[in-house]
Design a protein around this nucleic acid. Structure first.
Lengths: 336, 336
DNA sequence: ATGAAAGCGCTAACAA
DNA sequence: TTGTTAGCGCTTTCAT
């Protein structure tokens, strides 16, 4: 391993000068020296020691990614169909800016706090945490935190998410436009993101001002086995009561379409189905799923950008950010 | 931040003693002292500084995960449908053993080498690298490397994967047993994992010893758009030529089933379809996909275990490991 | 069983 | 513009 000291000796300068060259402090070093050192750095394949860096300066260049893992369940899979793309995009954004990404799946915010402290991370991005946990984390870590997909109307917490309410409204308006009057919004909870989407559904109904329209929020079990049970019991009934079912995620929509097919109920002839997310599965199923598209890579990019802005101490950064969302018309909704 | 020194002062001992307690060197410290220090450590919420640790000892407790990212394409998504589960399982295994996971998606092994050196990682796990790249990595890093899903018959490289050949044979035998005589094995390449699976297909045919059976390896385009194009042109023809299509991955099988449905070809009545992997999508489609199941979490567990064994300098570790695979009979294959 | 002390490689304040 | 120096918190060897 080659150290700054070695380079310095070989170049006949002091370690400080080499360090300055490395960090681009061009004002402190003569242009000629810079060139000479840079060549040496490259020739000798100098590689910095993160350990020493972390210990010496405050700057560790580490960003921690905390993914919530409630109860050891692999929710990250179902709940976050984009987990892999998101992680990949985050890492790319982080690495491009000369930071490193330390990933940890954690059940409790406490573990996250310890994790952050141990590595002296410069910032944290949280995925899948509820507002409570995020706030707790925020309270115990001095470093900036940006959360992804959390809803908190207060401006206390930096987060980037989608225009979920707008997305909900967009799809609902489309459903209304295509003649649907009994719309069921199906989700496994009524908080955070899903609640926002539901608010969009309601708002679209209000704006539309149809008197005869009926809309309801249907809560389905989160756990797969019991959800299947639920479908077996109630899905046929739902299909007869509603003319469109708008699912809070593609995952649920695709699953329901499969069950509906098993029951001999045709989508979209007997019932229109819509999803949210525009995951890969939306084009792997039949009929192709009409859904709301989100741009995951952009979400990652914005999260990293925002975090780094905080780290660099910029003022005037908006706390919450809602990325736009678009309607993707496919085959699972039909004109009535 | 509370340091070892602080704890030592408060306990009236030297930093060395505290360090010994932390590292469980029970032989060097009296039982009474151990207890006292441990309590203090907990009460004062001592959190070690990784920077200092890395700098002082050689032990960084960092495991690097390198995911191949050829050409900036998000192949990790399609090619590795399990990427998220795999990453999550890896992290869990690593963290449980008091290591940390540094994740990096890289296009070139060179970048990986630099990454490993910068952090002075204790070991590396690679995902999705070809044999050549893995060997190159191996050559330039002194740390142990375990690769996942790579095939190299040589014993030069530690890797954990599946019994792909066995899986291919298993499914093929089942197909033969159920009366299929014209089987097409469909993959987007003929190297590594897919080649092994194909070898299994061939072996099953040989073992079965049917004279009239015909089998072929069908290569489909890897890029999605051109693959769809290919399907449009040739899939109907394939469906008439073969009585079973065995896809090298569930992803392709599910996709093909959707296209077949569009063409009015019924699975399994007109054509049997089988997959490999048993991903989530295999039970989200209709008909339910008959496939070969693999246990991703177990793969992660074995990879980490093997890597740590190498790190701890154990001898007598098998270089390559093939995890077993099972047949999952569902609805996409019918008795002929 | 416990402690003193050296040093890991780097950064930054200060001196020249 | 360049150099000197004092740590950062921890581990480890060697005394005691």
């Amino acid at each position: 391993m080659i150290r700054i000291k070695d380079i310095a000796r070989e170049a006949g300068v002091s370690p400080t000068t080499v360090s300055n060259v490395i960090h681009g402090n061009r004002k402190k070093v003569s242009g000629e020296t810079v060139k000479r050192i840079e060549k040496l750095l490259k020739d000798r394949e100098y590689i910095p020691s993160m350990g020493a860096r972390m210990l010496a300066g405050g700057s560790t260049r580490v960003i921690g990614i905390l993914v919530a893992e409630p109860g050891g369940e692999k929710r990250c899979v179902e709940g976050h169909p984009f987990a892999n793309i998101l992680l990949r995009s985050l890492e790319r954004e982080i690495y491009e800016r000369n930071y490193y990404m330390l990933l940890h799946f954690t059940a409790t915010p406490e573990e996250g706090i310890q994790f952050a402290a141990t590595w002296n991370v410069e910032g944290l991005i949280t995925i899948g945490f509820g507002t409570g946990d995020n706030l707790r984390l925020q309270g115990s870590c001095k470093v900036p935190i940006v959360s992804i997909d959390v809803y908190y109307d207060d401006e206390r917490m930096a987060n980037v998410g989608l225009d979920d309410k707008g997305g909900g409204a967009l799809m609902t308006k489309y459903l209304l436009d295509t003649g649907h009057r009994k719309i069921g919004f199906v989700a496994d909870n009524d908080v955070g993101v899903d609640h926002e989407r539901w608010k969009g559904v309601c708002k679209a109904h209000e704006d539309y001002g149809v008197k005869d329209a009926c809309v309801r929020h249907i809560i389905i079990p989160e756990e797969r086995r019991t959800r299947r049970e639920y479908y077996r019991k109630y899905l046929a009934q739902l299909a007869s009561e509603y003319d469109a079912l708008f699912f809070a995620s593609d995952y649920y929509a695709v699953e329901a379409m499969a069950v509906l097919r098993d029951m001999g109920i045709s989508v979209p002839e007997d019932l229109s189905v819509a999803g949210f997310d525009d995951t890969e599965s939306a084009v792997m199923c039949r009929p192709l799923l009409t859904t709301v598209h989100q741009d995951v890579e952009r979400k990652a990019e914005h999260a990293v950008r925002k975090l780094l802005a905080f780290i660099q101490g910029e003022r005037k950064i908006s706390m919450t950010e809602r990325l736009p969302v678009t309607l993707v018309l496919r085959d699972s909704v039909k004109n009535r």
